[in-house]
């Protein structure tokens, strides 16, 4: 088993790079307390007053914000929020898409019809505007993004899984399970579900990047929580504090690079994973 996984990564550069990036950020998030050199929200003072807009130094690796906060520490703590949002959104999409696809594909009929109509409605909602309205409706919290991603992205996973279930349903072993008196519940979750789990994982891994990007956008637009340090919050802070006209690149470039790395890692993993799932692509 381990040898098999090793072989997959050895042959698949994209996936390996993606996993390495994730491992890096997971380690950073776990040991954030040790790595960060400062409290990310503390307003720092120097001998000459407020330590605002300081250039990088040994005390503040990436300098300070216009409010005298340590940029490097904010960056480190931001990884926690990004990982939490990304992974829970992935879980939400994978679980919702899988259950919906299984039920829709297995039962067919009016249940299938109803679910597919709901999918049309979810796909008819403009994504970011809906997340903004939802954030206003539920109050500022990072979980809005997770809820919104779950609500709007399940149809993509659900539809693919449904069509897969449609073909699985006709297989001989399902027939024999039915004949031997298995309950529908047992057939769906014990006999069909394991076959479509790779697809659930694929759509989940795609959702990670989406969730991190969306969280950043929502925070940037000012609908995120103001007491949680996230990369989107840092960018919003920089934008509204005239970091652009001050040319404080060191303030707003690093959070963006972190977002790009996380999202790209998600793309790489799903791409590599797709090649493993559908070897035909890789010619």
């Amino acid at each position: 088993m381990i040898a098999e996984i090793y072989k997959i990564f050895k042959e698949n550069n994209y996936a390996t790079i993606g996993v390495c990036i994730y491992l890096f950020f997971i380690l950073v998030a776990i040991f954030a307390d040790l790595i960060a050199t400062n409290d990310p929200l503390r307003i720092n003072f120097s001998s000459s007053g407020l330590a605002r807009n300081l250039p990088p130094s040994w005390e503040y690796f990436l300098g300070t914000t216009s409010n005298g906060r340590d940029i490097f520490s904010q960056l480190i703590y931001g990884s926690r929020n990004a990982l939490a949002v990304g992974l829970s959104a992935a879980l939400a999409v994978a679980i919702l898409g899988t259950i919906v696809g299984l039920i829709s594909g297995f039962y067919g009929g009016w249940i299938d019809n109803l679910i597919m109509r709901l999918a049309d409605i979810a796909l008819g909602l403009p994504f970011l505007p809906f997340v903004i309205v939802l954030a206003a409706f539920l109050g500022p919290s990072s979980w809005n993004v997770v809820i919104a991603i779950g609500l709007l992205l399940w149809p993509n996973a659900g539809r693919i899984i449904r069509s897969q279930v449609l073909t699985l349903r006709e297989r001989g072993y399902i027939e024999s399970a039915k004949v031997s008196g298995c309950s529908n519940f047992r057939i769906i979750f014990l006999h069909i579900a394991p076959n479509i789990l790779p697809l659930s994982f694929l759509y989940g891994s795609i959702a990670i990047g989406w969730a991190i990007l969306t969280e950043a956008s929502v925070s940037f637009l000012g609908f995120g929580p103001s007491d949680v340090i996230s990369w989107g919050y840092m960018l919003q802070d920089a934008y509204s504090s005239q970091a652009l006209s001050l040319g404080a690149y060191i303030w707003f470039i690093p959070p963006g690079i972190c977002i790009v790395l996380m999202v790209v890692a998600g793309f790489f993993i799903s791409r590599g994973y797709e090649e493993i799932l559908f070897p035909k692509i890789k010619k």
């Binding site: 960018l235 690149y249 977002i259």
Partner: peptide, 11 residues
């Protein structure tokens, strides 16, 4: 494709 649009805009 992975870069947030608004970040590219800020740069």
């Amino acid at each position: 494709r992975s870069a947030p649009e608004f970040w590219l805009g800020m740069i």
